[in-house]
Nucleic acid binder design. Structure first.
Lengths: 250, 250
DNA sequence: TCAAAAATCAATCACTTTCATTCAAAACCA
DNA sequence: TGGTTTTGAATGAAAGTGATTGATTTTTGA
């Protein structure tokens, strides 16, 4: 088995399961322990995984990470619904900020094509935006390998060049007491900054995000309007007392 | 079996299976190991596949990668030669600036993987850099659709956050009187700025760029060292009186 | 809590495979 | 025929592999 092929197998396994034992790699590839060790060392150097005693683990440790399958299909429909509504809020002449992330990404296909300016920290959005012929600006800064997002001190400084009519953010947790949270401190700071530069801010959060708390706080609930697709009567009232909330139903 | 036919067979095999061992090609074509190696080398140069130890693998088109309008392979070979030498100038611990553009892009594969920091305005470089595990920063600014480069006032401001040990630029024209030139005024300004922030600057210019003049001036010849692959005796003397020049021969 | 036992690790070595280079024979072309 | 290109074999160099060793870490159990 060729080296890159083994690497691919290893990465695939680590993608499916956050912790994999060395022996499992050996069984899956047929290579020797030594070889797998070498592979893991290389892959760690390239920041694709983290070696731990006994094997390797996935690098991105998002608290409450939904499984890949879950992310793709059912959740996707929710995301699209929310994204479509969010996009409808954008008017010609607006300058908007689009956060990195999959939910926000779904907005792009629904954006008006004429006369809007988009600023983003998400490299993954650029291609789509350009294809639609939308004028777009990237903020500068460190490129985070795992998410292809731009973060860091430079990103925050870079953001300060801009002001936004509207700002659209994805988050990992929405909590009535702890506000909006996300697993990465640096990303949280970028979101925070973007939020502070916008006249109106919107949080795109599907139903799975509610009552969740992740590591780093972005802001209190009142700093933005929540867009979601489904919410218990009870929760709705609870959150609505703190901030605006729009439940998209179709 | 004729060369083009072998190439077809090889490409077909790599199309069906992402990893193919050298021996499999030998069996499939009846040619010798040597011949297959030569074929693979050629096909790699034309960017149809990637050689790996023991065989070859399919290369998947990267996000934001320049379109497949590949230049003639001779021109490409020149670029690779120059790029390889340029990359050898980068030492561990350096922080470098990589300009957007195809020649500079070829440098990435030859860069040392350890302990360097890369700043760039070329979106097309990011994926490759990340894959190699290189720490990279993007400057902020307007995303130019045609070239996937970041330009504009924001780019220049964004650049000012950084200082470089070395700076590598591509240009369209090198002229003994008009210096380094490029067709886009905005890009020229970004290059100019990057150049001014670097302790050492290098221009990567294949032979076709000499004595050419494009629209926007970046700097005079003496502002950077020229790296090229071929130059008449006469021209060499002429340019060498103005700046350092390195002719890469292998 | 501590120390023995077990598991895992990094480092190294010998071995195998693969590689680039060279060169002469073969094929091709005019 | 003479000259060029392509080919395959031979060479030593380079890279990858798997086993072994002793060190390190984790687990076990008293």
């Amino acid at each position: 088995m060729l080296t890159p092929e083994r690497h691919r197998v290893i990465l695939q396994m680590i993608k499916e399961k956050p912790h994999v034992k060395l022996q499992e790699f050996v069984d899956a590839t047929g290579a020797s322990e030594s070889t797998i060790r070498r592979d893991l060392t290389q892959l760690e150097e390239k920041k694709f995984l983290k070696r731990v005693h006994g094997g390797a683990e996935r690098l991105q440790r998002k608290l409450l990470e939904p499984s890949m399958a879950e992310k793709s299909s059912k959740n996707l429909h929710e995301k699209v619904m929310i994204a479509k509504y969010a996009a409808s809020l954008v008017e010609e002449g607006d300058s908007i900020y689009l956060d990195a992330g999959s939910t926000v990404r779904e907005m792009i296909q629904f954006l008006p094509e004429k006369d809007i300016v988009v600023v983003t920290n998400g490299l993954m959005h650029i291609q789509l935006l350009l294809e639609k012929g939308i004028e777009c600006y990237l903020i500068g800064g460190y490129v985070k390998q795992k998410t292809n997002a731009i973060i860091g001190r430079g990103a925050i400084e870079s953001l300060e060049q801009y002001r936004f009519d509207k700002c659209f953010l994805g988050v990992n947790g929405v909590h009535h007491h702890y506000g909006y949270t996300t697993p990465d401190q640096e990303e949280a700071m970028v979101k925070q900054k973007a939020l502070s530069l916008a006249a109106e801010a919107f949080i795109l959060a599907d139903s799975s995000k509610f009552s969740e708390v992740s590591f780093a706080k972005i802001a209190g609930l009142d700093a933005a309007t929540i867009l979601t697709n489904q919410l218990d009567e009870e929760l709705h009232i609870q959150y609505n007392s703190k901030t605006d909330i729009k439940v998209v139903t179709s």
